[in-house]
Every structure is written in structure tokens, then in C-alpha cells.
Amino acid sequence: MKKIMVLGSGCAKCSKTAEQLEKLAQELGVEAEVSKQTDPQVIMQYGVMSTPAVVIDDQIVHTGSIPHTEEIKAWLKR
């Protein structure tokens, strides 16, 4: 079970990132729990400045944009 978190202030790009992650996880049959984190204090603790950022099992894998489909697939397959 992967714990995936999207860090961001709740802008359109962040929601889109979360949707993409959920959709692709389903397609690939990977068990994953996707959540959105909008609390600025938590975002600061991860040291993230460009949102949306993606955190998988407590590791920051991406910051600053909606990730590409290929990238997401690679993370999910790991």
C-alpha cells in the first residue's frame, strides 16, 4: 500500500495532480491512498516551495508542476 500525498495550496493544478495519481493507480492496479495536504505548516516542514508537490511514502518525488503520465507510472511501479 503506497501512501501518496499531494502538497499544495488547493489550486487547480494540485487537484488535477491528485486526480491523475488516483486514476493511474487504479489503471495499473496499484494499491494507493492519495490525499491532499493544504496546511502551509506541513508543506514548510517538507521544505517544498513550488507546488503541487508529490510525496510518496514520505519521500518527495516531484515539485512544481503537474507530473507527466510516464513519471507517475514509474513511481507507482516502484
Binding site: S9, P40, V48, S50
Partner: peptide
């Protein structure tokens, strides 16, 4: 370049 929706994380990133 940065999107205005990132102002808060940027503010905190600089501050911290």
C-alpha cells in the same frame, strides 16, 4: 517564474 498560488510555500520556504 512561479505561480501566484505558490506564494505561501515560497514565503515560508524563504522564511525558514
Amino acid at each position: 517564474p512561479f505561480c501566484s498560488c505558490s506564494s505561501i510555500p515560497v514565503f515560508l520556504g524563504f522564511t525558514s
